[in-house]
Design a protein around this nucleic acid. Sequence first.
DNA 1: CGCGATCCTTGACCGAGATCAAACTGGAAT
DNA 2: ATTCCAGTTTGATCTCGGTCAAGGATCGCG
Lengths: 246, 246
Amino acid sequence: MHDCRRPLRLVEPEWMSACDTCIVRNRAICAGLEHPEITALSAMGRRRSVSAGEPLIWEDDDSLLVANVIEGVLKLTTSTADGREQIVGVAYPSDFIGRPFGQTSAASVVALTDARVCVFARNDFDRFAREHPELEHKLLERTLAELDRTRAWMMLLGRKSAPEKIATFLLDMSERLADNGCMAHTGPARQFTLPFSRQQVADLLGLTIETVSRQFTRLKADGVVALPGRRDVEILDRAALQALAG
Amino acid sequence: MHDCRRPLRLVEPEWMSACDTCIVRNRAICAGLEHPEITALSAMGRRRSVSAGEPLIWEDDDSLLVANVIEGVLKLTTSTADGREQIVGVAYPSDFIGRPFGQTSAASVVALTDARVCVFARNDFDRFAREHPELEHKLLERTLAELDRTRAWMMLLGRKSAPEKIATFLLDMSERLADNGCMAHTGPARQFTLPFSRQQVADLLGLTIETVSRQFTRLKADGVVALPGRRDVEILDRAALQALAG
DNA sequence: CGCGATCCTTGACCGAGATCAAACTGGAAT
DNA sequence: ATTCCAGTTTGATCTCGGTCAAGGATCGCG
């Protein structure tokens, strides 16, 4: 789907921007931009590291920045006044985060793992996007896909039981965490490391940490999964998971 | 926010398209398109009536059409194999429905009230949109706003109690159903008629019909709302509702 | 006006998942 | 090693909302 054979350079000539060696260059919304444009965009943005647990955007803040995820995983959350939290989205490398063309951000963004992002001032980005329809089109496709995923998750939150939620979650992770690199599509991962704590899984599924823990324990007891480490999952019986997912 | 003083004509000269008299012309994504474009778009689309309960798009169907809502209210739903349903979106006049730039639709669309829509073949629309950045920009803004709304709803589905869900729902309806016309912004409606049956409210909130009914009864008993008809709501104590909504 | 169908409400009961509390685990720091 | 501590698991109990089962209201229609 994307060309991954872009030449790797160890030294950057003067005319090259940081984008030329960016590992998500072919997958992020920047893909397809040619040289004058990529240079202009590169001049507006700057790279930033965010360590695990560190916030990047606050809910209800003025929407001041947008970003591309280069590396790592981040969560988008909304919270109630009394501290309940719901994870409303998860951003992986090449994903776009933030709220362009709007005054405020509806969700907080916090890094789940150490992460690197490429941030832009929102109004700079907005202006640039409006002048580059190809970029806006990429952003539109991404936003439509994210809306589809979000709606599927609403079904999970509103109508699925705890066992169904957990099974659906594990299958989803198995696909999302499969091929983050740029190799040929390898299919869903049999084993993987979750970027979430138990509490975060609970916040994603609309459950409590205790229920999540009990469901994991049960799947392990039934031989459906193995749990070699706190965050490690190995799927032993995918068919059983699919049956449970409903 | 939009200009509502577009002249009304009772007869249409030859060169006018149906769009020129369209009541959502100034609010839908078509707003801002000028004459050669609006004529081309008009030629591609056709108007269609959908009666209450009638489907317009089937979940998992090939995404063959997209549409603008002219009049009426429609629901977007996803269902599980065993028949559980979740309403994942509601479309009002001037809203855009369907999945452009994608092979399949993730949700079914069914009319809640008698409705009129302006439908386009998806591939015609896709091609036209790619050639008209201004249209794509409007669609992007709309999709981003819808994503924000959907994420706020995820919080409701995952973390709110039944009383909180009902209160949030009523306040949301009070705003959405306020000024569907094009008059000056009137603020939230004090009384309104729901476009939903009790079962549909349940499908929207991730509850059962019995729970919805009990919560309505309780709000009535507490003098927070009056319920003059099956679908009629009058808000007597908005502050109480806001407190309940959390 | 009365009939029937559909939608809605109410009641009794149940159970999945929340809550409260305590014990366990595994990695980091001393 | 030992201690410490956050994160996790497990157990006991409770409660909110679901389920099952009747009734009641409302509306379209003859």
